[in-house]
């Protein structure tokens, strides 16, 4: 069946090349621009020469090397705050949504197929709904909270929003694993003297661990890159990296330090993902996603 014809092989390579070129063009542009001296965003800046100053500006307080107006320095300070905000929101929302999502999935799993399907519709709603609608709906409830309880928009509302849109991905990752485990696992644990909670923690959770880890990775990925929903619910003063870039863009100037920041994050993610892939290939458990 596997005839080694040149034309099919060539067309296979071409289609992969086309797809990956389209997806990777922005990545390459960001990579190049993070290393070039020019401030301009309308060229790659190749003629201006290379520099590491954008990377340097992310660490320490020595902005002398940047050799520009004070406006830029205060920009970088606010970028650092935005980075801290992003990680605070992402880490907390990943932990909370992984725990909640896992329990929801266990709950959903114990229902009959009919009820399970309607629960899954509820679960999948935020996944399918465009971000702008999710953002607008959450904004409405937060504005209502604000007018009733004086609940101000900022870190809290962004965190709740991120937990909200992350949970469905955790549920979707955990459920297939639950379908795979033996239905009697829980009962066996109960027969052997486990309490209800112990049975869940000692028998069910360990056997669905790969699903939980995949769900957590999903939640982290969705949260760290979220822009639209954060934009809607963050109020006037709270910025994460995405909304910070957006407000810089609307003011007409994006400092290139943020390019450097993104390349660092991308590099870390690449290493982590490639390592987990390789180890999962070795264990022969297949891909995580």
């Amino acid at each position: 069946m596997m005839k080694k014809n040149i034309i099919p092989t060539l067309s296979k390579v071409l289609i992969l090349a086309l797809a990956f070129t389209l997806i990777y063009i922005p990545v390459v542009v960001i990579l190049i621009m993070s290393f070039t001296k020019s401030y301009s965003l309308s060229t790659l800046g190749l003629e201006s020469g290379g520099t590491l100053k954008w990377y340097g500006s992310l660490f320490g307080n020595n902005y002398g090397a940047l050799d520009i107006a004070k406006k830029y320095v205060s920009n970088i300070a606010s970028l650092k705050t935005a980075i801290v905000n992003t990680f605070a929101v992402t880490i907390i929302s990943t932990i909370v949504s992984t725990i909640l999502g896992t329990f929801f999935a266990i709950g959903i799993h114990s229902f009959s197929k009919k009820i399970r399907t309607s629960l899954m519709v509820l679960n999948n709603m935020p996944v399918i709904m465009p971000d702008i609608v999710t953002g607008f709906l959450l904004l409405l409830i937060f504005v209502l909270f604000e007018s009733i309880f004086g609940f101000k928009r900022g870190f809290n509302t962004v965190l709740i929003a991120h937990i909200f849109f992350s949970i469905p991905y955790v549920v979707l990752s955990v459920l297939p694993r639950l379908n795979q485990i033996d239905e009697n696992t829980y009962e066996a644990a109960r027969d052997l003297g486990c309490s209800r909670f112990e049975a869940v923690f000692k028998a069910i959770i360990p056997s669905i661990m790969t699903g939980i880890v995949a769900g957590a990775m999903f939640a982290f990925t969705m949260s760290i890159d979220d822009f639209v929903i954060s934009m809607f619910v963050s109020g006037q003063k709270f910025y994460n990296v995405s909304t910070w870039i957006d407000s810089s863009l609307r003011r007409g100037f994006i400092p290139k330090s943020v390019y450097a920041y993104n390349i660092i994050i991308f590099a870390i993610a690449s290493i982590v993902v490639v390592l987990t892939r390789i180890s999962s290939i070795r264990k022969n458990k297949g891909a995580l996603v």
């Binding site: 063009i25 922005p26 621009m33 957006d246 991308f266 999962s280 297949g286």
Partner: peptide, 30 residues
């Protein structure tokens, strides 16, 4: 290799989406 290619496909999602959009603008500018 399939697992690796799959990883390569998802990795660009780690690059900030607003920045990816702006970099397309840079390309059209060039």
């Amino acid at each position: 290799y399939r697992a690796l290619i799959m990883a390569l496909l998802i990795l660009p999602l780690w690059m900030n989406q607003v920045l990816r959009i702006v970099s397309w603008r840079t390309i059209f500018e060039i």
